[in-house]
Amino acid sequence: MERRHERRDECGDGGIELVVFHVGALRFAVVSENIRGIADPAETPDAPAPALADLLGLVGASAIVSADTHGSRERLLRFRHTAQDGASDGAQRPGVRIEEPVSLRRAPVDAIHPLPALLEALSELPCVRGLVTLSATNADDLAILIDPRRLPVEACTTPPAHAARRGQG
């Protein structure tokens, strides 16, 4: 598997493939290598998966979904990571619930941005790794890069006050 990805990078632009999806009005991206599958949560026999919105402490994100994204459908994002990859609970977690539309994009290396220093120093969520610009022409076409191996194990109980203030947008 690793050899295949090395070959792809050598032939490509040094960029990375991302799965892009929504949670409320926010857009997130996960490196596609970390995704095992995308399923309909209603048709999976697994234990109920937590919503990514709850893990990130996005208060009322599901209520905003219908207004901002015209009633997006939930999908179950299953991660490939295991304990050997550095995740403490990866083998146990069935995945997280996210919202459509879900897309697969290839981002060139210069579209990937680390978090600004202040944000990196102050963020309470180690799973938030950076940002990706999804359009060369629209500066506001951004997604937040998430590392599923660093997701919180439990729902965030003390959501940031400004999440509600700004309505996740």
Partner: peptide, 11 residues
């Protein structure tokens, strides 16, 4: 653009 996990003063 709001980024989750930041203190309130970081917009």
């Amino acid at each position: 653009h709001f980024v989750p996990g930041c203190p309130p003063a970081l917009e």
